[in-house]
Each structure stands twice: as structure tokens, then as C-alpha cells.
Design a protein around this nucleic acid. Structure first.
Length: 328
DNA sequence: AAGGATATCAACCGCTCTTAC
DNA sequence: GGTAAGAGCGGTTGATATCCT
């Protein structure tokens, strides 16, 4: 037995909204608000529409300050970064773009931006027949056929992004691209004080981060003047006592990230991880990193990375969590 | 000019999450 | 703690517009 439908399907109008319907809905909400009950709203104003349909119409088209079309390069960049980072969580992506709706961004992504970016990659792939290590991730034992479209797409886009930003080296085996570790997190994993360590573990546990595995991370970090690849304002939020070791409720993205980490990473991220058959000891990348590290200037670790920005910082933590930390 | 192919995007569907009781 | 109902979300559909041959 399924759940009861939210409205009488036989007696509700479907399809495009008429201007009259729009006016009715907008006028009512302008005057009285939604009343916290979308299901009851259409009956109140005499609309033969499902409450969900009213909600969608209001959120996507009738509410004030909605923008349609004309996405800027900056918006493209934000969408791309967030998509690679968190996948198709359109509502979260939309929350970072004032005036944009999740539906609009989703449509824009599916119809334009994705094609634009993947198209560019195809072009680049043709020009550059030399396979880099990222491509090897796909071409070796982890064939695209074994991956979900979403995961493959995101990997492709991630590769694309790295190719654009650093044509000679890929992200995962190129520490120069890695942001710094947040100082508080760095102190967490380097402190000899066991009590402090335990306290930090309490904080990090809900994030899905196993501090024991951060120690592996510090092996690299210690060789590089204490700077390690992890940085995230997400972690900063988590470690900020002003937030009670939690996250501000109005920071939707951080809440989302928290949620993802609470679950040991997003469904998509770990799906991707599984598809790569990642091992808990992160061996697939650590060898590359180690090799790369040996060949690179140590001073480069302290340099400002092209990814050392807010959204990319989140990317790194999430990708890093996905690929190298145990699920708690 | 016709009509088939492709692109676009508003809207729907069904699921999960949240909240109130 | 369990349950039901509403809210919210992401995937998908289908009507329409535009492009291409």
C-alpha cells in the first residue's frame, strides 16, 4: 500500500500556468504568505492545482528577484566547481547563486553548461593524445563502463578543470594544487597531547573523518613544512567554538557538507569511490603523490594553489574524504 | 518550404527528509 | 519512539522552439 496522494489527481489542472493563475497565486502569497501549508493553499484561493505545483510555480517563477537565463562566466564557474564537488545537489548549488533556482540551474547544466565543458574536453583530448595519470584512472582497471554516468561525468569534468588550470599535471598527483591544511586541523593531528587529540576526534568524528588516518596525511605534511593538502572552511566551521562545533543553520552548504560527511560522504561521492574500488589505505593515489612529491620543490607546498579558494577548498576536503579516509 | 532532429525549459513524479503530534 | 503529512529535492517528461537537411 503506497502513501496517499497529496491531492486529488483527477480534479487538478496540469500543464502550463495561465497568467490568471499566476496572478491569483502571486496576489495571495503577497498578501498572506503561504501560511506554511502548500497543500491547502490552492483551495483557499480557488486554484485547481496541486499544492506542490503551486509551490513550484512560486519558487521558480513568481517569487521576487528571480533571474532567468543569461548565466555569467562567474556563475558557470561556481556551478562547475560545486557540481564536481557535490554532484547534482541543485538546491545547494542554487543557494550559492542569488536569484537562481535549482530547476533553472539543473536545466542550464543539462542543456548547455555540461555540453560546453565536456565538448571542450573532447576537443582537448583529440589535441593531446598523451594520457596523464588521471586518464589512467579511467583507462586502467576502472573502465568507464563500470562507473555511473554521474561519477564518470564528474571525473571527466574534474580532469577538464585541472587540464585547464594546470595542463602539465593532474590534481590528485600534484600537491602544488592542494590547498593548505587548516591550521586548527593541522594542530589537531600534530599535537602530542592525547587529551586534545581525543577532543578533536569528538569533533571530527561526525564529519566522517577518522583522525587516525589524518596521521598518514601528516607524513606528507611534515615533510612539507607542516603544510598538508587539506583545507576547508567546512572544517573551520566545525572547529569554530562560536558555532558550538556545529554549523550555522543558515549556511546551507555547510549543513549539507556536514550531512554528507555525517553519512560518510555523499552518496554520489562514495559511489564514485566504490567505482574506483578505492582501498582504505588510499594506496591508489598515495604512490603517485609520493612520487610526485619527491620530484617537486618542497617550497611549492606553501604557495597559493589555484584551488586554494573557498569552493575548491570544499572540493578538496570532500574528494579527499572520499578517496582517503575511512568511513567512521 | 517542409519535416525531421535536436535543444530548451516548465512542470510533473516519486522519493526522502523533516516536523508535529 | 512511531506515525502521518507536508516540504523539499532530483530525475524525468513532454510541449514548444529552433536548427538542419
Amino acid at each position: 500500500m503506497g502513501r496517499a496522494p497529496c491531492c486529488d489527481k483527477a480534479n487538478v489542472k496540469k500543464g502550463p500556468w495561465s497568467p490568471e493563475e499566476d496572478v491569483k497565486l502571486k496576489d495571495y502569497i503577497d498578501k498572506y504568505g503561504t501560511g506554511g501549508n502548500w497543500i491547502a493553499l490552492p483551495q483557499k484561493i480557488g486554484l485547481k492545482r496541486c499544492g506542490k505545483s503551486c509551490r513550484l510555480r512560486w519558487l521558480n517563477y513568481l517569487r521576487p528577484n528571480i533571474k532567468h537565463g543569461g548565466f555569467s562566466e562567474e556563475e558557470d564557474s561556481i556551478i562547475l566547481n560545486l557540481y564536481i564537488s557535490i554532484g547534482s545537489r541543485w538546491s545547494i548549488i542554487a543557494a550559492q547563486l542569488p536569484g537562481r533556482t535549482d530547476n533553472d540551474i539543473k536545466n542550464y547544466w543539462n542543456t548547455k553548461l555540461k555540453k560546453k565543458l565536456l565538448g571542450r574536453q573532447k576537443q582537448m583530448n583529440r589535441q593531446d593524445s598523451i594520457t596523464n595519470s588521471n586518464e589512467n584512472i579511467i583507462s586502467n582497471n576502472k573502465s568507464p563502463q563500470n562507473m555511473s554516468n554521474s561519477a564518470l561525468e564528474r571525473l571527466q569534468l574534474h580532469m577538464q578543470l585541472q587540464n585547464i588550470q594546470s595542463p602539465f599535471s593532474s590534481f590528485y598527483n600534484n600537491p602544488i594544487l592542494w590547498p593548505k591544511l587548516h591550521p586548527l586541523l593541522q594542530s589537531t593531528i600534530t599535537t602530542p597531547d592525547q587529551n586534545s587529540k581525543l577532543a578533536f576526534q569528538e569533533i571530527l568524528h561526525p564529519l566522517g573523518v577518522n583522525v587516525a588516518h589524518l596521521n598518514n596525511h601528516t607524513k606528507i605534511a611534515e615533510l612539507n613544512n607542516g603544510v598538508s593538502p587539506i583545507y576547508s572552511d567546512h572544517v573551520e566551521q566545525a572547529l569554530n567554538p562560536a558555532h558550538g562545533f556545529g554549523f550555522s543553520q543558515d549556511l546551507e552548504l555547510d549543513n549539507h557538507n556536514m550531512d554528507l560527511m555525517n553519512r560518510g560522504g555523499s552518496k554520489e561521492l562514495f559511489q564514485a569511490g566504490n567505482e574506483f574500488e578505492l582501498t582504505n589505505d588510499s594506496s591508489w593515489w598515495s604512490e603517485d603523490v609520493e612520487l610526485e612529491r619527491k620530484t617537486m620543490s618542497l617550497s611549492s607546498w606553501g604557495s597559493t594553489s589555484v584551488l586554494d579558494k573557498t569552493t575548491e577548498g570544499r572540493d578538496i576536503l570532500q574528494d579527499y574524504a572520499q578517496m582517503s579516509y575511512h568511513r567512521v
